[in-house]
Design a protein around this nucleic acid. Structure first.
Lengths: 121, 121
DNA sequence: CGGAATCCCTTCAGATACTG
DNA sequence: CAGTATCTGAAGGGATTCCG
């Protein structure tokens, strides 16, 4: 038992954390959820869908997802330029688990908020 | 379609983010994973299992999990004091989905790391 | 033993301005 | 249109000290 737990000790040696940390940020899951509902989407369309993300963070998030091959980026060398984003197969396989998580969150949200209120007092 | 996407727009109105943000931090999932493998565990034992967490962050994380009723905290008024933590039923139901995610992470880790390398160049 | 409180540094992320 | 670059305030999180 203790030996199994040791695996969690140091972050660099834990493969799970190495990967999960990447989309454990503020926006990655959200972007993935949006891209999971469309075929392709342009940068500005994404920005309009997620109103409270800054242009900078949207770019950073998309680059990170692209690096992990969770999202594919296609540039059309036109004038004006056009860039489209779409979810990859790997992204879809992750999204399945994300959906399970969000479903759990929706089911338990009210109870959790209630627990938080009780905890304050 | 567009109408569905609007739900994601503003964070305060998105129940999912409200809940997921809470354990989207650096340590919550890890603590939950550890507590999912034992019956009960004392503070110092947890600290020894997760070597690279600070005492402060362990405390903060545990309080947060306790507030959401994902973890139960029991104080034994002895000298020296003893405090034990255990996962709740709600915590276990969440852990199921976490395990699916970590399994996915383990399966895809090598490919993802490879993608990241390619992306650099 | 199991914290709480404080200090302090680093990283995150928003606003703004500029560019191919 | 789809970014990049820079600046800056806010937040996260570590180290240390103190306490019941």
């Amino acid at each position: 038992m203790e030996n199994n737990l040791k695996n969690f000790s140091v972050s660099e040696k834990c493969p799970v954390r190495n990967v999960l940390d990447r989309f454990g940020d503020k926006w990655s899951i959200l972007v993935l959820l949006v891209l999971g509902e469309v075929e392709k989407m342009r940068f500005n369309a994404l920005h309009k869908t997620i109103l409270d993300i800054s242009q900078k963070m949207l770019t950073v998030t998309l680059r990170s997802l692209e690096a992990d091959d969770l999202v594919k980026r296609t540039i059309y060398p036109e004038i004006p330029p056009r860039v489209e984003y779409e979810i990859t197969e790997r992204g879809k396989s992750l999204l399945t688990h994300i959906h399970n998580l969000t479903a759990w969150a929706e089911e338990n949200m009210l109870d959790i908020l209630e627990s938080r209120e009780k905890f304050k007092s």
